[in-house]
Design a protein around this nucleic acid. Structure first.
Lengths: 222, 222
DNA sequence: AACAATCTTAAAATTTCCTTAAAAGATTTT
DNA sequence: AAAATCTTTTAAGGAAATTTTAAGATTGTT
């Protein structure tokens, strides 16, 4: 999947590029509107992230130009503005969604997936051993039997599976799943791991969430 | 591996320089933002540690400047701040990670390794003779057979293998593995060396942890 | 042999994790 | 708006694993 980022602030564009590439997207960056338009004409992108405030040609104008040529590519605005009128403006200009800065990377990712899924009928799924997660429908199956997860359970499981084969420390889990950026002596993680283990247990009695004492948790096949 | 430390407090920068050099990094220190930017332009670093609060040019600004020229070098912020918005700010400016002061040296080291680690799905492993450690899964194999280590055993072995061919004194071991910065008359190290030897022993009966009487321990192949 | 350093072992102390239950917070239904 | 339901968080006891202490045995050196 190919993504174009049109953003003049190096910090943000780097942050986005790195993060998205880790998610296996191919990312091009344009530092101003003119280059953004050019690149969008030359290459075929699956999605475009567009900064609202750009030097020279404004984000809105870039959006209009792109829409003239390509009517289908999903465009998401990155904006510091959040008033209704601005939003309407953006959507009028042909954007599909917008996200307010500063945003959580995970939220951006979620919105990107929303845009990408509508395109082809393919479903976005994660698999590990006997567990299958459908990210579009938010349904989870163990041995092809559906189990019901709450939102937090779902994102914890998603995080563990995305990081399969790597230990997930409590710190990383708290940061990514709970979006808390400080140490805390809470035991929510333990509780949720317990919830997940109970729900993931099939008849064979084994769950695939392993504890690495003193470090964190890990999932892997076998 | 070359690291630039931008930090005005002499105490902290010395502590970092010494610690990192013991870990076999080459370390340069800049005492203010201006020098930090200069050094980053002149030399090629594998990673930059950047204090948030600097006299003169702020850490954020230093980060932006560095990013203008060099978009790939990993930057880790050292910060006393821990609110979400500050963090987002830092990441927006192009940082890859941040660590809250006061931090344990080992945790900083872990985060440095995350940044230096090869990007792809490659697994991070250490090998010596018949011993193989997977740092991502925290699993250890002797002659391809898995053995179970406790956290302390794991980090002691990691330390010994990272320093293979060099004698590890008790003082260095206590500092690095136990993170204690003072002499003590404990005999934990003896005990843990004993634990490790037992677990590492394969059928042939030889372990590769050698005692250097009056000095410390060493591991090497053969 | 005498001394010091290291090894070994077992038990005590501590930490970490699991499990539960109940409180608090959201969301939906009535 | 109140009640009912579902989700999330907190708190606490207990179990299990890890870490440390301590003391006697062993080894190496002078």
């Amino acid at each position: 999947m190919r993504i174009l980022v049109v953003e003049d602030e190096k910090g943000i564009s780097n942050f986005l590029k790195d993060g998205l590439e880790e998610e296996a997207f191919a990312v091009d960056v344009a530092a101003d509107g003119k280059k953004g338009i050019e690149l969008s004409f030359v290459n075929e992108y699956d999605l475009i992230l567009l900064d609202w405030m750009l030097p020279g040609v404004s984000g809105i104008e870039v959006c209009r130009q792109i829409r003239k040529i390509n009517s289908s590519v999903p465009i998401i605005f990155l904006t510091a503005k959040d008033t209704v009128s601005d939003t309407v403006y953006g959507l009028d200009a042909g954007a599909n969604d917008y996200i307010k800065k500063p945003f959580r990377f995970e939220e951006l990712l979620a919105r990107i997936r929303v845009q990408l899924r509508t395109k082809d009928g393919e479903q976005n799924t994660l698999k590990l051993a006997n567990v299958e997660m459908n990210l579009d429908t938010h349904r989870v199956f163990v041995n092809s039997k559906e189990i019901m997860l709450t939102p937090k359970e779902f994102s914890l499981l998603e995080f563990l599976i995305r990081n399969k084969g790597k230990v997930c420390t409590r710190t990383r889990i708290i940061e990514h799943v709970w979006d808390m950026h400080f140490d805390s002596d809470t035991s929510v993680i333990d509780v949720y791991i317990n919830f997940l283990r109970k729900k993931l247990n099939d008849e064979s009695g084994k769950s695939f969430i392993h504890t690495i004492r003193g470090v964190g948790y890990i999932m892997h096949d076998e």
